[in-house]
């Protein structure tokens, strides 16, 4: 087990290194730069812009900039934001809370809803409900997240007036209920895709379990359906499901970025978009590295849990 872990961690470090190179190259080779925002307003002269460029070290060769950035990163220094004049880690820390709130709540919603739909679908296989769930899941995976967000806002905020059209809370009212009220819309939007994924996986993994011998035995013993379902089938079906959550991290992060944009949610997605438009290189790199770490951790946890859930799984190189 520990040998496996060490190997996976080493792999992850190598991957992060490649990720950092790809990210750095893409960002710095792109035209434009962090000074564009000041050039546009017209009250800084070219001399000012050139001076700032030199002060930020942007006039040096790219490999030199990369090595320096990497060296600092290895020393725990993630750099200072060009826009904020604050350490990147502090900025990310300040934005990660709302994103986590959104991601965790929507994952929870997706798990409950998805599991319910999946189980029901498995029990009543080929029923109307099952067919509708199948079609629904496929559609859910096809809707552009931001458009679904717009529709939710149009129906529930503009039309019915039930939900706020955006933001994390009302100014001057940060109560729990108020925050919950604001969370509903984005949470539903972000949960859409995961719910579809969960329900499909849950359905097939339930079907597999239901057809296994020990369930048949239990049935033959005359145990109640409900008891069998909860006691045996669900437990065994749930375990592999947990791994899915780990593998969902990248999808969830992408979804969060879009959802945050539509609902003006003050999280990391907004920060990333803002930083891209300012070309705030240190912050963008910081977020890219952090999301990569989260993705790798997610898949690592998925693998480990999968092993725990099913000790029969052998571990080879991959």
């Amino acid at each position: 087990m520990s040998g496996f872990l060490i190997r996976r961690l080493l792999q992850a470090v190598v991957l992060l290194f490649i990720v950092s190179m790809i990210g750095f190259a893409i960002l710095h080779l792109a035209p434009g730069g962090p000074l564009s925002q000041f050039a546009a307003s017209g009250d800084m002269t070219q001399a000012d812009l050139d001076r700032l460029s030199a002060q930020l070290g942007l006039d040096r060769p790219l490999p030199v900039q990369y090595v320096e950035w990497l060296w600092r990163l290895l020393g725990g220094d993630w750099g200072v934001s060009y826009r904020d004049q604050q350490p990147v880690l502090r900025i990310i820390a300040a934005h990660i809370g709302p994103t986590m709130e959104l991601m965790l709540s929507s994952t929870l919603l997706a798990m409950l809803l998805g599991a319910w739909i999946g189980i029901l679908g498995a029990i009543k296989r080929y029923s109307l409900f099952d067919s509708l769930a199948t079609i629904g899941a496929m559609i859910a995976l096809s809707i552009p997240t931001f458009w679904f967000g717009l529709v939710i806002i149009y129906v529930f905020s503009v039309g019915l007036g039930w939900l706020p059209a955006g933001n994390r809370y009302t100014v001057g009212d940060g109560s729990f209920l108020n925050r919950l009220h604001h969370l509903i819309g984005p949470c539903i939007v972000l949960a859409l895709v995961s719910t579809a994924v969960w329900s499909r996986y849950m359905r097939s993994s339930m079907l597999e379990v239901i057809n296994q011998d020990y369930i048949r035995t239990a049935r033959a013993k005359g145990l109640s359906e409900r008891y069998i379902l909860v006691r045996h089938a669900l437990r065994n079906a749930l375990l592999p499901m947990i791994t899915i959550t780990g593998l969902q991290v990248p999808t969830l992060l992408s979804g969060a970025l879009v959802t945050e944009t539509v609902f003006t949610w003050p999280g990391m997605g907004r920060l990333f978009l803002d930083s891209i438009s300012y070309r705030d290189y240190p912050t963008i790199m910081g977020i890219l590295m952090l999301t990569a770490i989260m993705v790798l951790l997610g898949s690592l946890i998925a693998d480990v849990l999968y092993g725990v859930a099913d000790p029969r799984i052998e571990r080879n190189g991959q």
Partner: peptide, 13 residues
């Protein structure tokens, strides 16, 4: 058209 960070970069100055 280009994103702000590109257009107001070297393209402009």
């Amino acid at each position: 058209n280009m994103p702000g960070a590109v257009i107001w970069g070297d393209f402009y100055v």
